[in-house]
Amino acid sequence: MSVYTTNEIRGGMKVMIDNDPCVILENEFVKPGKGQAFNRIKYRNLKTGRVVERTYKSGDSIPGADVVDVEAQYLYSDGQHWHFMTKETFEQYVMDDKDLAEAKQWLKEQSDCVLTLFNGAPLAVVAPNFVILKIIETDPGVRGDTSGGGGKPAKLETGAVVRVPLFVQEGEIIRVDTRTGTYVARAKE
């Protein structure tokens, strides 16, 4: 695996820090006029999800991580294990329910997703930015309500709960932004 020096590090790069795969979020060059040069590097630990900052001397090096994102499809879950298949190679991967984090609340069978593979094993799964899901449970809305203000919780077919406007009814299909977990609009199948 390649090694990067601080000046090559860019947002989005995958590197190994303290033996964990991490993704770089920010790399800021800091140098007092007459002082030593540093890089303040902010990154997310891909195993724990934690965002951390660390200061490196400029010129220090950080090893790259064998981390790749591949497009995949969620096949099915047996309760304990989730099964995925990559779109390009049709290879199948299995992930533990507990490792799925928040992505699982947006995934239904046949959903597209992105699998992050670390040394060839699945590390994380990311749902698409937008998903279209059916409401399976919500209180009946009040008549005459428009989309502004208020809202009510609605349970979706995947188990996620999002706030929807009062006029949206059980059985309807909606579009949700998975990055913020918010309702976007009503959708058609």
Partner: peptide, 21 residues
């Protein structure tokens, strides 16, 4: 809790790090 990757040898560099952080 200044998260430094590696210790610094030079006293002035420590002063700089304390200053910037």
């Amino acid at each position: 809790n200044i998260p430094l990757h590696e210790s610094l040898s030079d006293r002035d560099a420590w002063l700089d790090v304390l200053w910037t952080h």
